[in-house]
Amino acid sequence: MFSRLLVPVDGTPEALEAVDAAIAIARICKASIHLLHVVPSFPAVTYLAERVGATRELYEQEAGARALAWLGQAREHVLGAGVACEGDYTFAARIHDAIVDVARDYDCDLIVMAAPLRPGMLSNLFTSEAQAVMQAAVTPVLAWR
């Protein structure tokens, strides 16, 4: 049985479906859910920033606010289903690395994340974030679709 599930969310409807799946598992196992939103760190978007004239402070402030909004939406969903929940966002250059680190730091025993099926050949050309996490994590990964 699981005790703590890590659910990375990115604000998409697919991610919320993965949250639903995690809720179903958490209810059976009486587990808690740890929500995580990873924001690409400022240096990763520097080139874009030069064009829009943003500063690091402004970027982090606004990205943080949006992350909190997404997390709040997901957290309400989880708490509404009667499952214990915590959540946080973090800045990282490589999203899958941040997910793996958090899974380790918080002793999560399962990572549940959305891995939407891309149509046709696209699925062979672009590996999903979930696949990157699988390659890097010791924790089992449930690719939800």
């Binding site: 891995a115 099926l117 699925s123 390659q135 994590a137 010791v138 089992p140 990964v141 449930l142 939800w144």
Partner: peptide, 28 residues
């Protein structure tokens, strides 16, 4: 699980991930 091996998932796993309509749980 090794340093080099951890760079790859099994080829069958990758193919199943690429084509499955059903959720896939990967354990390593």
């Amino acid at each position: 699980r090794g340093v080099l091996k951890s760079l790859f998932l099994g080829s069958v796993v990758v193919k199943v991930l690429a084509g499955s309509n059903v959720p896939v749980l990967v354990v390593r």
